[in-house]
């Protein structure tokens, strides 16, 4: 049963995942070539000075990828569910929703983490070829909150699509956007190094929260 459920989600998501994987690959190629060119036209000291002292993030553009992954996968996974009451159909499967919802949400998040994680690993690899581990660690610190932002957007998309009352959708969207902003406002690589676990906790609360709109859709909630 669970395997069938997982398979169903995979069928739904395979095209978006394919496209996102291609996009991620293209962005990695671009990051690699861009770094090569950057290293060619600028003197190495100047480049390192920018990275270490000015804490520039030449990889800043690539960090959008997890957020894109989260948003695209969230929408493409939950949009079909919310049309024509297919969510209710899903919930009337002979399986407790306590297992079902975590499996469906977990599948989506798994793919978000997988795609964004592979992309992040690629970035780390590209930078590790040229720079010492301190700079690469900075990249990882800068990447982690964006990863959380990707998960936030995934959950946010699911929540907004599933909610029953429009004002709750709007308010939820505002809250998720606010948290997204909180996660992406760091201007220096390791800006979140001291507090990432707290942000992780808040993200986790958003994941757990997803159970609520599902139950509202199933049982019929208040307006």
């Amino acid at each position: 049963m669970l395997r069938a459920l997982f398979y169903k989600e995979w069928i739904k998501l395979r095209w978006p995942i394919g496209i996102l994987a291609l996009l991620g690959l293209a962005s990695l190629v671009q990051a690699g070539l861009g770094l090569r060119y950057l290293a060619a036209i600028r003197e190495s000291t100047e480049l390192w000075e920018g990275l270490i002292l000015k804490q520039q993030m030449p990889y800043g553009g690539q960090l959008v990828f997890p957020a894109v992954c989260g948003l695209v996968l969230g929408v493409s996974q939950w949009f079909p569910e919310t049309r024509q009451r297919s969510l209710r159909l899903l919930l009337h499967l002979p399986l407790s929703e306590k297992i079902l919802i975590p499996v469906v949400v977990g599948t989506g998040l798994l793919f978000v983490c997988l795609l964004a994680g592979l992309h992040g690993l690629g970035l780390v690899f590209i930078y590790a070829l040229r720079f010492p581990h301190e700079i690469v660690t900075g990249l990882v610190w800068a990447w982690l909150p964006h990863m959380l932002a990707g998960m936030t957007l995934y959950c946010g998309a699911a929540m907004v699509l599933m909610e029953t009352a429009w004002w709750r959708r709007v308010m939820g969207a505002c809250l998720v956007y606010g948290f997204f902003k909180m996660l992406t406002s760091g201007g220096q690589p390791a800006a979140y190094a001291q507090s990432l676990w707290m942000y992780g906790l808040v993200t986790l609360s958003l994941v757990i929260m997803l159970f609520l709109p599902v139950m509202r859709a199933k049982r019929g909630g208040d307006q």
Binding site: L175, G178, F179, V202, S205, L206, M209, F211, L212
Partner: peptide, 16 residues
């Protein structure tokens, strides 16, 4: 589960 999920939502909203 719904209970936890509801207070998770409250917590999230409170932080933001």
């Amino acid at each position: 589960m719904t209970f936890f999920s509801r207070y998770a939502a409250v917590f999230f909203a409170l932080v933001v």
